[in-house]
Design a protein around this nucleic acid. Structure first.
Lengths: 231, 231
DNA sequence: TAGTGGTCTAGACCACATG
DNA sequence: ATGTGGTCTAGACCACTAC
Protein backbone atom coordinates (compact mmCIF):
# COMPACT_ATOMS: atom_id res chain seq x y z
CA UNK A 1 0.00 0.00 0.00
CA UNK A 2 1.80 3.05 -1.23
CA UNK A 3 0.33 6.12 0.37
CA UNK A 4 -0.15 9.30 -1.63
CA UNK A 5 2.72 11.62 -0.83
CA UNK A 6 0.56 14.42 0.50
CA UNK A 7 -1.23 12.00 2.79
CA UNK A 8 2.11 10.65 3.97
CA UNK A 9 3.23 14.15 4.89
CA UNK A 10 -0.02 14.83 6.69
CA UNK A 11 0.28 11.64 8.70
CA UNK A 12 3.93 12.23 9.49
CA UNK A 13 3.21 15.54 11.18
CA UNK A 14 0.03 14.24 12.78
CA UNK A 15 2.11 11.48 14.30
CA UNK A 16 4.83 13.85 15.48
CA UNK A 17 2.24 16.05 17.16
CA UNK A 18 0.16 13.30 18.77
CA UNK A 19 3.23 11.47 20.00
CA UNK A 20 4.50 14.60 21.66
CA UNK A 21 7.61 14.87 19.51
CA UNK A 22 6.26 18.24 18.40
CA UNK A 23 4.82 20.06 21.38
CA UNK A 24 2.15 22.76 21.42
CA UNK A 25 3.45 26.16 20.40
CA UNK A 26 6.49 24.75 18.66
CA UNK A 27 7.15 26.02 15.19
CA UNK A 28 7.07 23.55 12.32
CA UNK A 29 9.58 23.67 9.48
CA UNK A 30 8.73 26.11 6.72
CA UNK A 31 7.02 24.79 3.63
CA UNK A 32 10.33 25.09 1.80
CA UNK A 33 12.04 22.88 4.37
CA UNK A 34 9.28 20.30 4.27
CA UNK A 35 9.55 20.26 0.47
CA UNK A 36 13.20 19.38 0.87
CA UNK A 37 12.57 16.76 3.55
CA UNK A 38 10.01 14.88 1.48
CA UNK A 39 11.36 15.77 -1.94
CA UNK A 40 8.11 17.11 -3.30
CA UNK A 41 6.59 20.31 -4.59
CA UNK A 42 5.28 23.09 -2.42
CA UNK A 43 1.69 22.51 -3.52
CA UNK A 44 1.78 19.03 -2.03
CA UNK A 45 3.14 20.31 1.25
CA UNK A 46 0.56 23.07 1.33
CA UNK A 47 -2.34 20.68 0.85
CA UNK A 48 -1.11 18.46 3.67
CA UNK A 49 -0.73 21.38 6.05
CA UNK A 50 -4.09 22.80 5.04
CA UNK A 51 -5.68 19.51 6.02
CA UNK A 52 -3.94 19.54 9.41
CA UNK A 53 -5.01 23.12 9.99
CA UNK A 54 -8.58 22.17 9.16
CA UNK A 55 -8.40 19.42 11.77
CA UNK A 56 -7.19 21.96 14.30
CA UNK A 57 -3.84 20.33 14.90
CA UNK A 58 -1.76 23.23 13.62
CA UNK A 59 -2.10 26.96 13.20
CA UNK A 60 -0.66 28.83 10.25
CA UNK A 61 0.37 32.44 10.53
CA UNK A 62 1.61 34.49 7.65
CA UNK A 63 5.13 35.71 7.93
CA UNK A 64 5.54 33.88 11.25
CA UNK A 65 5.23 30.26 10.16
CA UNK A 66 3.27 27.18 11.13
CA UNK A 67 2.83 26.16 14.76
CA UNK A 68 1.46 23.21 16.69
CA UNK A 69 -1.92 24.31 18.04
CA UNK A 70 -2.38 24.66 21.78
CA UNK A 71 -4.77 22.09 23.16
CA UNK A 72 -7.81 24.14 24.02
CA UNK A 73 -11.24 22.76 23.53
CA UNK A 74 -11.56 19.29 22.23
CA UNK A 75 -14.21 18.89 19.60
CA UNK A 76 -15.90 15.55 19.52
CA UNK A 77 -18.36 14.10 17.09
CA UNK A 78 -21.80 13.82 18.62
CA UNK A 79 -24.10 11.18 17.18
CA UNK A 80 -27.69 12.33 16.96
CA UNK A 81 -29.84 9.35 16.03
CA UNK A 82 -33.36 9.51 14.73
CA UNK A 83 -35.58 8.39 17.58
CA UNK A 84 -37.72 6.06 15.51
CA UNK A 85 -34.66 4.33 14.08
CA UNK A 86 -33.00 4.12 17.50
CA UNK A 87 -35.96 2.44 19.13
CA UNK A 88 -36.38 0.07 16.21
CA UNK A 89 -32.70 -0.85 16.43
CA UNK A 90 -33.26 -1.84 20.05
CA UNK A 91 -35.93 -4.26 18.92
CA UNK A 92 -38.70 -2.20 20.49
CA UNK A 93 -41.84 -0.81 18.94
CA UNK A 94 -41.80 2.92 18.34
CA UNK A 95 -44.81 5.19 18.46
CA UNK A 96 -45.31 8.94 18.51
CA UNK A 97 -48.45 10.47 19.93
CA UNK A 98 -49.24 13.93 18.63
CA UNK A 99 -50.94 15.94 21.38
CA UNK A 100 -51.15 19.41 19.90
CA UNK A 101 -50.93 20.86 16.44
CA UNK A 102 -51.76 24.49 15.86
CA UNK A 103 -50.80 27.36 13.66
CA UNK A 104 -49.44 30.47 15.31
CA UNK A 105 -47.02 33.30 14.88
CA UNK A 106 -43.84 32.78 16.85
CA UNK A 107 -43.28 35.49 19.40
CA UNK A 108 -39.77 34.65 20.44
CA UNK A 109 -36.71 32.61 19.58
CA UNK A 110 -35.03 32.34 16.23
CA UNK A 111 -38.42 31.90 14.53
CA UNK A 112 -39.88 35.09 16.01
CA UNK A 113 -42.38 36.87 13.79
CA UNK A 114 -42.86 33.94 11.43
CA UNK A 115 -45.98 31.92 10.87
CA UNK A 116 -45.27 28.55 12.44
CA UNK A 117 -46.75 25.19 13.23
CA UNK A 118 -46.58 24.44 16.93
CA UNK A 119 -46.44 20.74 17.80
CA UNK A 120 -46.22 18.78 21.03
CA UNK A 121 -46.23 15.06 21.55
CA UNK A 122 -44.70 12.09 23.28
CA UNK A 123 -42.37 9.38 21.98
CA UNK A 124 -43.05 5.84 23.14
CA UNK A 125 -40.87 2.73 23.12
CA UNK A 126 -42.88 -0.47 23.60
CA UNK A 127 -45.71 1.61 24.99
CA UNK A 128 -43.58 3.33 27.62
CA UNK A 129 -43.15 7.09 27.44
CA UNK A 130 -39.59 7.87 26.54
CA UNK A 131 -39.50 11.52 25.62
CA UNK A 132 -41.64 14.62 25.47
CA UNK A 133 -41.22 16.94 22.52
CA UNK A 134 -42.22 20.55 21.98
CA UNK A 135 -41.50 21.73 18.47
CA UNK A 136 -42.01 24.81 16.36
CA UNK A 137 -41.68 24.58 12.59
CA UNK A 138 -41.51 27.56 10.26
CA UNK A 139 -44.32 27.46 7.71
CA UNK A 140 -42.36 29.91 5.60
CA UNK A 141 -39.40 27.54 5.32
CA UNK A 142 -41.43 24.31 5.25
CA UNK A 143 -44.90 24.96 3.82
CA UNK A 144 -45.28 21.29 2.90
CA UNK A 145 -45.58 20.31 6.55
CA UNK A 146 -49.07 21.76 6.67
CA UNK A 147 -50.21 18.78 4.64
CA UNK A 148 -48.06 16.16 6.33
CA UNK A 149 -49.54 13.29 8.32
CA UNK A 150 -47.66 13.79 11.56
CA UNK A 151 -49.60 11.14 13.38
CA UNK A 152 -48.04 8.50 11.17
CA UNK A 153 -44.52 9.93 11.29
CA UNK A 154 -43.04 11.99 14.12
CA UNK A 155 -42.28 15.58 13.16
CA UNK A 156 -38.55 15.09 13.65
CA UNK A 157 -38.50 12.05 11.41
CA UNK A 158 -40.66 13.77 8.81
CA UNK A 159 -38.37 16.79 8.77
CA UNK A 160 -35.29 14.60 8.53
CA UNK A 161 -36.71 12.91 5.45
CA UNK A 162 -38.08 16.01 3.76
CA UNK A 163 -36.02 19.03 4.73
CA UNK A 164 -32.24 19.01 4.48
CA UNK A 165 -31.01 21.47 7.06
CA UNK A 166 -27.59 23.00 6.70
CA UNK A 167 -26.96 24.36 10.15
CA UNK A 168 -27.98 23.43 13.66
CA UNK A 169 -27.04 24.10 17.22
CA UNK A 170 -27.80 22.01 20.27
CA UNK A 171 -27.93 22.73 23.96
CA UNK A 172 -27.78 19.72 26.23
CA UNK A 173 -28.72 20.03 29.89
CA UNK A 174 -30.22 18.10 32.78
CA UNK A 175 -33.51 19.32 34.22
CA UNK A 176 -36.18 18.31 36.67
CA UNK A 177 -39.59 17.59 35.17
CA UNK A 178 -42.45 19.98 35.83
CA UNK A 179 -45.70 18.50 37.03
CA UNK A 180 -47.25 18.68 33.57
CA UNK A 181 -44.26 17.03 31.95
CA UNK A 182 -44.10 14.39 34.66
CA UNK A 183 -47.72 13.49 33.97
CA UNK A 184 -47.09 13.11 30.25
CA UNK A 185 -43.99 11.00 30.78
CA UNK A 186 -45.51 8.98 33.62
CA UNK A 187 -42.70 9.74 36.06
CA UNK A 188 -42.59 11.48 39.42
CA UNK A 189 -42.55 15.25 39.40
CA UNK A 190 -38.99 16.52 39.62
CA UNK A 191 -37.59 13.33 38.09
CA UNK A 192 -34.33 13.99 36.20
CA UNK A 193 -34.46 14.32 32.44
CA UNK A 194 -31.94 14.86 29.70
CA UNK A 195 -32.97 17.98 27.83
CA UNK A 196 -31.94 18.63 24.24
CA UNK A 197 -32.81 21.97 22.68
CA UNK A 198 -32.05 22.24 19.00
CA UNK A 199 -32.46 25.00 16.46
CA UNK A 200 -31.93 24.37 12.78
CA UNK A 201 -31.51 26.51 9.70
CA UNK A 202 -31.43 26.04 5.98
CA UNK A 203 -28.92 28.60 4.86
CA UNK A 204 -30.00 31.78 6.64
CA UNK A 205 -33.61 30.72 7.01
CA UNK A 206 -34.68 29.25 10.39
CA UNK A 207 -36.43 25.93 9.92
CA UNK A 208 -37.39 24.53 13.31
CA UNK A 209 -36.68 24.65 17.00
CA UNK A 210 -37.35 21.78 19.33
CA UNK A 211 -37.08 20.94 23.00
CA UNK A 212 -36.91 17.26 23.85
CA UNK A 213 -37.07 15.84 27.36
CA UNK A 214 -35.79 12.30 27.75
CA UNK A 215 -36.61 10.24 30.79
CA UNK A 216 -33.36 9.45 32.58
CA UNK A 217 -32.18 5.96 31.71
CA UNK A 218 -34.17 5.74 28.49
CA UNK A 219 -31.67 7.63 26.40
CA UNK A 220 -28.05 8.59 26.21
CA UNK A 221 -25.99 10.70 23.87
CA UNK A 222 -22.74 9.33 22.54
CA UNK A 223 -19.83 11.37 21.31
CA UNK A 224 -16.52 10.26 19.96
CA UNK A 225 -13.15 11.66 19.06
CA UNK A 226 -10.48 9.89 17.14
CA UNK A 227 -9.10 8.66 13.86
CA UNK A 228 -12.48 7.28 12.84
CA UNK A 229 -14.24 10.45 13.83
CA UNK A 230 -13.19 12.98 11.23
CA UNK A 231 -13.27 10.47 8.42
CA UNK B 1 -13.48 41.94 -0.95
CA UNK B 2 -12.28 39.91 -3.86
CA UNK B 3 -12.79 36.27 -3.04
CA UNK B 4 -10.13 33.73 -3.94
CA UNK B 5 -11.24 31.93 -7.06
CA UNK B 6 -11.30 28.48 -5.48
CA UNK B 7 -13.42 29.78 -2.63
CA UNK B 8 -15.77 31.40 -5.12
CA UNK B 9 -16.23 28.09 -6.87
CA UNK B 10 -16.79 26.30 -3.59
CA UNK B 11 -19.45 28.80 -2.55
CA UNK B 12 -21.12 28.76 -5.93
CA UNK B 13 -21.79 25.05 -5.73
CA UNK B 14 -22.61 25.18 -2.04
CA UNK B 15 -25.23 27.78 -2.90
CA UNK B 16 -26.63 25.77 -5.78
CA UNK B 17 -26.97 22.74 -3.54
CA UNK B 18 -28.40 24.48 -0.48
CA UNK B 19 -30.90 26.43 -2.56
CA UNK B 20 -32.13 23.23 -4.11
CA UNK B 21 -31.06 24.16 -7.61
CA UNK B 22 -28.90 21.04 -7.49
CA UNK B 23 -30.85 18.24 -5.85
CA UNK B 24 -29.48 15.16 -4.08
CA UNK B 25 -28.23 12.52 -6.49
CA UNK B 26 -27.86 14.95 -9.36
CA UNK B 27 -24.58 14.88 -11.19
CA UNK B 28 -22.40 17.98 -11.18
CA UNK B 29 -20.49 19.15 -14.25
CA UNK B 30 -17.15 17.45 -14.78
CA UNK B 31 -14.02 19.20 -13.59
CA UNK B 32 -13.24 20.07 -17.18
CA UNK B 33 -16.60 21.79 -17.57
CA UNK B 34 -16.20 23.70 -14.32
CA UNK B 35 -12.74 24.82 -15.47
CA UNK B 36 -14.37 26.26 -18.56
CA UNK B 37 -17.22 27.88 -16.61
CA UNK B 38 -14.92 29.69 -14.23
CA UNK B 39 -11.92 30.05 -16.53
CA UNK B 40 -9.43 28.51 -14.16
CA UNK B 41 -7.11 25.54 -13.90
CA UNK B 42 -8.18 22.06 -12.92
CA UNK B 43 -6.22 22.18 -9.65
CA UNK B 44 -8.35 25.07 -8.45
CA UNK B 45 -11.55 23.25 -9.30
CA UNK B 46 -10.29 20.13 -7.60
CA UNK B 47 -9.47 21.92 -4.37
CA UNK B 48 -12.92 23.50 -4.25
CA UNK B 49 -14.65 20.17 -4.85
CA UNK B 50 -12.41 18.43 -2.31
CA UNK B 51 -13.53 20.95 0.30
CA UNK B 52 -17.19 20.35 -0.53
CA UNK B 53 -16.66 16.60 -0.36
CA UNK B 54 -15.00 17.01 3.04
CA UNK B 55 -18.04 18.94 4.23
CA UNK B 56 -20.23 16.09 3.04
CA UNK B 57 -22.14 18.13 0.48
CA UNK B 58 -20.99 16.15 -2.52
CA UNK B 59 -19.74 12.68 -3.32
CA UNK B 60 -17.06 12.03 -5.90
CA UNK B 61 -16.92 8.76 -7.78
CA UNK B 62 -14.19 7.86 -10.21
CA UNK B 63 -15.24 7.38 -13.77
CA UNK B 64 -18.82 8.27 -12.84
CA UNK B 65 -18.46 11.90 -11.80
CA UNK B 66 -19.39 14.13 -8.89
CA UNK B 67 -22.84 14.01 -7.32
CA UNK B 68 -24.83 15.95 -4.76
CA UNK B 69 -24.77 13.90 -1.56
CA UNK B 70 -27.86 12.12 -0.26
CA UNK B 71 -29.63 13.19 2.96
CA UNK B 72 -27.29 14.21 5.67
CA UNK B 73 -25.94 12.06 8.45
CA UNK B 74 -26.91 13.26 11.87
CA UNK B 75 -23.64 14.05 13.51
CA UNK B 76 -22.67 17.28 15.15
CA UNK B 77 -19.57 18.81 16.61
CA UNK B 78 -19.62 18.73 20.40
CA UNK B 79 -17.50 21.30 22.18
CA UNK B 80 -15.84 19.91 25.28
CA UNK B 81 -14.40 22.81 27.23
CA UNK B 82 -11.86 22.64 30.01
CA UNK B 83 -13.73 23.34 33.23
CA UNK B 84 -11.18 25.73 34.66
CA UNK B 85 -11.14 27.76 31.47
CA UNK B 86 -14.92 27.74 31.23
CA UNK B 87 -15.42 29.06 34.73
CA UNK B 88 -12.73 31.68 34.25
CA UNK B 89 -14.39 32.79 31.03
CA UNK B 90 -17.60 33.40 32.99
CA UNK B 91 -15.71 35.74 35.27
CA UNK B 92 -15.96 33.37 38.20
CA UNK B 93 -13.24 31.96 40.40
CA UNK B 94 -12.45 28.32 39.80
CA UNK B 95 -11.26 25.86 42.39
CA UNK B 96 -10.86 22.10 42.52
CA UNK B 97 -10.87 20.24 45.80
CA UNK B 98 -9.14 16.89 45.70
CA UNK B 99 -10.87 14.51 48.09
CA UNK B 100 -9.21 11.19 47.38
CA UNK B 101 -6.00 10.13 45.73
CA UNK B 102 -4.89 6.55 45.88
CA UNK B 103 -3.01 3.98 43.87
CA UNK B 104 -4.81 0.83 42.95
CA UNK B 105 -5.14 -1.80 40.28
CA UNK B 106 -8.21 -1.27 38.15
CA UNK B 107 -10.58 -4.19 38.33
CA UNK B 108 -12.95 -3.23 35.57
CA UNK B 109 -13.48 -0.93 32.65
CA UNK B 110 -11.07 -0.22 29.86
CA UNK B 111 -8.21 0.18 32.37
CA UNK B 112 -8.78 -3.24 33.95
CA UNK B 113 -5.63 -4.92 35.24
CA UNK B 114 -3.50 -1.80 35.07
CA UNK B 115 -1.93 0.09 37.94
CA UNK B 116 -3.90 3.30 38.22
CA UNK B 117 -4.32 6.46 40.22
CA UNK B 118 -7.85 6.83 41.51
CA UNK B 119 -8.97 10.40 42.13
CA UNK B 120 -12.16 12.02 43.32
CA UNK B 121 -12.90 15.67 43.91
CA UNK B 122 -15.28 18.54 43.45
CA UNK B 123 -15.16 21.50 41.07
CA UNK B 124 -16.22 24.86 42.47
CA UNK B 125 -17.23 28.10 40.74
CA UNK B 126 -17.13 31.10 43.06
CA UNK B 127 -17.18 28.74 46.00
CA UNK B 128 -20.30 26.88 44.87
CA UNK B 129 -20.05 23.20 44.06
CA UNK B 130 -20.51 22.72 40.36
CA UNK B 131 -19.45 19.19 39.59
CA UNK B 132 -18.29 15.99 41.20
CA UNK B 133 -15.59 14.02 39.46
CA UNK B 134 -14.45 10.42 39.82
CA UNK B 135 -11.40 9.68 37.71
CA UNK B 136 -9.04 6.81 37.06
CA UNK B 137 -5.70 7.45 35.37
CA UNK B 138 -3.40 4.77 34.03
CA UNK B 139 0.01 4.95 35.67
CA UNK B 140 1.39 2.90 32.84
CA UNK B 141 0.34 5.47 30.25
CA UNK B 142 0.94 8.55 32.39
CA UNK B 143 3.64 7.85 34.98
CA UNK B 144 4.35 11.57 35.35
CA UNK B 145 1.02 12.12 37.10
CA UNK B 146 2.39 10.42 40.22
CA UNK B 147 4.47 13.53 40.81
CA UNK B 148 1.87 16.10 39.73
CA UNK B 149 0.41 18.63 42.14
CA UNK B 150 -3.26 17.88 41.57
CA UNK B 151 -4.39 20.18 44.31
CA UNK B 152 -3.14 23.14 42.31
CA UNK B 153 -4.48 21.96 38.99
CA UNK B 154 -7.49 19.70 38.48
CA UNK B 155 -6.64 16.29 37.05
CA UNK B 156 -8.58 16.97 33.86
CA UNK B 157 -6.78 20.22 33.27
CA UNK B 158 -3.43 18.67 34.09
CA UNK B 159 -4.05 15.83 31.66
CA UNK B 160 -5.22 18.24 28.97
CA UNK B 161 -1.97 20.16 29.26
CA UNK B 162 0.37 17.20 29.55
CA UNK B 163 -1.08 14.23 27.72
CA UNK B 164 -2.29 14.45 24.14
CA UNK B 165 -4.84 11.75 23.51
CA UNK B 166 -5.79 10.38 20.17
CA UNK B 167 -9.12 8.79 20.88
CA UNK B 168 -12.00 9.34 23.27
CA UNK B 169 -15.60 8.38 23.71
CA UNK B 170 -18.27 10.06 25.76
CA UNK B 171 -21.58 8.98 27.20
CA UNK B 172 -23.95 11.74 28.22
CA UNK B 173 -26.94 11.01 30.43
CA UNK B 174 -29.16 12.55 33.07
CA UNK B 175 -29.16 10.98 36.53
CA UNK B 176 -30.48 11.58 40.01
CA UNK B 177 -27.83 12.23 42.65
CA UNK B 178 -27.19 9.60 45.28
CA UNK B 179 -27.15 10.73 48.89
CA UNK B 180 -23.35 10.80 49.00
CA UNK B 181 -23.11 12.78 45.81
CA UNK B 182 -25.85 15.15 46.94
CA UNK B 183 -23.91 15.87 50.10
CA UNK B 184 -20.74 16.67 48.18
CA UNK B 185 -22.54 18.91 45.71
CA UNK B 186 -24.73 20.54 48.36
CA UNK B 187 -27.99 19.72 46.62
CA UNK B 188 -31.03 17.68 47.58
CA UNK B 189 -30.77 13.93 47.18
CA UNK B 190 -32.25 12.88 43.87
CA UNK B 191 -31.59 16.29 42.31
CA UNK B 192 -31.02 16.02 38.54
CA UNK B 193 -27.47 16.06 37.23
CA UNK B 194 -25.88 15.95 33.84
CA UNK B 195 -23.54 12.97 33.77
CA UNK B 196 -20.58 12.75 31.41
CA UNK B 197 -18.58 9.54 31.28
CA UNK B 198 -15.47 9.71 29.15
CA UNK B 199 -12.78 7.20 28.29
CA UNK B 200 -9.61 8.24 26.47
CA UNK B 201 -6.80 6.44 24.72
CA UNK B 202 -3.44 7.33 23.30
CA UNK B 203 -3.14 5.07 20.34
CA UNK B 204 -4.14 1.66 21.69
CA UNK B 205 -3.20 2.46 25.26
CA UNK B 206 -6.00 3.48 27.64
CA UNK B 207 -5.17 6.74 29.41
CA UNK B 208 -8.01 7.71 31.69
CA UNK B 209 -11.67 7.23 32.43
CA UNK B 210 -13.78 9.79 34.21
CA UNK B 211 -17.33 10.27 35.42
CA UNK B 212 -18.43 13.84 35.97
CA UNK B 213 -21.71 14.88 37.58
CA UNK B 214 -22.78 18.43 36.88
CA UNK B 215 -25.41 20.13 38.99
CA UNK B 216 -28.36 20.95 36.73
CA UNK B 217 -28.23 24.56 35.67
CA UNK B 218 -24.52 24.97 36.30
CA UNK B 219 -23.41 23.48 33.05
CA UNK B 220 -24.54 22.77 29.55
CA UNK B 221 -23.04 21.04 26.58
CA UNK B 222 -23.16 22.75 23.22
CA UNK B 223 -23.02 21.04 19.88
CA UNK B 224 -23.16 22.53 16.46
CA UNK B 225 -23.44 21.55 12.86
CA UNK B 226 -22.87 23.71 9.87
CA UNK B 227 -20.53 25.47 7.51
CA UNK B 228 -18.72 27.15 10.37
CA UNK B 229 -18.52 23.83 12.17
CA UNK B 230 -14.89 23.96 13.16
CA UNK B 231 -15.22 27.42 14.63
C1' DT C 1 -11.49 1.12 -23.01
C1' DA C 2 -12.27 5.63 -22.59
C1' DG C 3 -13.29 9.20 -19.47
C1' DT C 4 -13.39 10.35 -14.78
C1' DG C 5 -11.33 11.89 -10.53
C1' DG C 6 -6.59 11.53 -7.67
C1' DT C 7 -2.44 13.22 -7.38
C1' DC C 8 1.67 15.69 -8.36
C1' DT C 9 5.06 19.21 -10.43
C1' DA C 10 7.79 23.44 -11.02
C1' DG C 11 7.17 27.25 -11.47
C1' DA C 12 4.67 32.15 -10.42
C1' DC C 13 2.68 36.43 -8.19
C1' DC C 14 0.55 38.37 -4.21
C1' DA C 15 -0.77 40.00 0.56
C1' DC C 16 0.63 40.35 4.75
C1' DA C 17 2.56 40.42 9.39
C1' DT C 18 6.64 40.42 11.66
C1' DG C 19 11.42 41.40 12.81
C1' DA D 1 12.08 45.15 4.02
C1' DT D 2 11.73 40.31 3.90
C1' DG D 3 10.23 35.87 4.16
C1' DT D 4 6.11 33.58 5.11
C1' DG D 5 1.88 31.36 3.76
C1' DG D 6 -2.23 31.92 0.08
C1' DT D 7 -3.33 31.12 -4.16
C1' DC D 8 -3.08 29.92 -8.91
C1' DT D 9 -1.41 27.81 -13.49
C1' DA D 10 -0.77 24.57 -17.33
C1' DG D 11 0.57 20.96 -17.88
C1' DA D 12 1.34 15.53 -16.56
C1' DC D 13 0.70 10.55 -15.33
C1' DC D 14 -1.98 7.20 -12.89
C1' DA D 15 -5.94 4.22 -11.06
C1' DC D 16 -10.13 3.08 -11.29
C1' DT D 17 -14.62 1.88 -12.96
C1' DA D 18 -18.70 2.31 -15.43
C1' DC D 19 -19.83 1.86 -20.05
Amino acid sequence: MTLPLGEAIRRAFEQRILSGALKPGVRLPTEQEIMAEFGCSRMTVSKALTALAGAGLIERRKRAGTFVARPRVHSMVLEVPDLAALVAARGQTYRFRLDRRERAVASEGHLAGQPVLHLTGVHFADGTAMAFEDRTVSLAAVPEIAAADLAAEAPGTWLLHHVPWTEADNRITAVATSSAEARLLDVAEGAPCLCVERRTWRGDAPVTSVRQLFVAGSYELLAHFGPGGAA
